[in-house]
């Protein structure tokens, strides 16, 4: 029993760390711009294709593809926000929603056009590797992905907290008008935020490419998962995204082990409903955050 539940918990926490990175991207965009990126899952899928392509055509290990995916997604996210999405910031929220839904559909359509509908999996030697600690087994690919995700979240947290630009992002998130008054270049800052959010999605995509088979139609599931994590952890909260990711990962795994594997997603949604009822701002979210 210890072996079953222990391994389920560890496996859930490892995948939860990657979930957290996915949710971090969504959270940072919402936190700074109050924009909901409905194309977030599609951005993760771009990262997955980059991870797959780097492995297949360049012979790169999945981890080595992470910087490539981050760079590509950062550039794309920055450009899209700077030259398209910024023009929508003053418009009603439903118009912004439609913009991002359209972006998501366009990305999926392009993926289907370019790569076809077939799932594409990365099969490397490490696909079958495990690290053993007594009865506990760490799936090597998942452990690498989790460590990389945690490192990236840590770096992002430190950069936001200690760098001047990070502080400017905080300022803009806290008070947009105040930020403008003190000379923060808001369009650039928003584009930077979108770039960082997209880079998180890209990195997470490259990390999960060896775990999940890449195909164009994965995106809605990923977007939904990111929303659940963000809502459970707390809107606009970086530690909240981390906590939410770990919690959802562990809860899904334990629900599968203790109840039935079919109850995995049921449990995530149940957790979401409980959090919405008991603490609508999320576990680490702030009530009525100013803007």
């Amino acid at each position: 029993m210890l072996e079953l539940y222990g391994n389920a918990l560890v496996g859930g926490l490892l995948i939860g760390a990657v979930y957290a990175l996915i949710a971090t991207g969504l959270n940072i965009i919402f936190g700074v711009m109050r924009v909901v990126n409905f194309a977030h899952g599609e951005m993760v899928v771009i990262g997955m294709y980059i991870g797959f392509g780097a492995w297949k055509y360049l012979g790169l290990a999945p981890l080595a593809a992470v910087p490539l995916a981050m760079a590509a997604l950062f550039a794309g996210g920055y450009a899209f926000q700077r030259w398209v999405a910024n023009a929508f910031l003053a418009r009603p929220q439903h118009v912004q929603f439609i913009l991002f839904i359209a972006l998501g559909l366009a990305i999926t359509g392009l993926h289907a056009l370019m790569f076809g509908p077939e799932p594409r999996g990365i099969q490397s030697a490490s696909s079958f590797e495990v690290y053993r600690f007594g009865v506990i087994r760490l799936d090597a690919v998942r452990a690498h992905a989790a460590l990389a995700a945690l490192a990236l979240i840590g770096l992002l947290w430190a950069w936001l907290r200690y760098s001047l630009t990070g502080k400017a992002l905080h300022a803009a998130a806290e008070n947009l008008v105040g930020g403008q008054v003190i000379g923060i270049r808001i369009p650039h800052l928003f584009a930077l935020t979108a770039g960082i959010g997209a880079a998180c999605a890209g990195a997470a995509g490259a990390l999960v490419a060896p775990l999940f088979e890449t195909q164009p139609y994965l995106a809605p599931e990923i977007t939904l998962l990111a929303f659940i994590i963000v809502i459970v952890g707390g809107l606009a909260s970086l530690p909240g995204a981390l906590l939410g990711g770990l919690l959802i990962g562990a809860a899904e795994a334990l629900a599968a082990a203790v109840i039935t594997p079919s109850a995995k997603s049921l449990f995530s949604y149940a957790l979401l409903i409980v959090v919405l009822l008991a603490r609508p701002e999320g576990l680490l979210g702030r009530r009525g955050a100013p803007r």
């Binding site: 079953l4 999940f212 039935t260 995995k264």
Partner: peptide, 20 residues
């Protein structure tokens, strides 16, 4: 008997239960 979701991306727990 162990059932799982048709869209499952990870069957580690299911296999662990089967092994048990």
């Amino acid at each position: 008997t162990i059932s799982y979701d048709a869209r499952a991306r990870d069957l580690s727990v299911e296999v662990a239960k089967a092994k048990a």
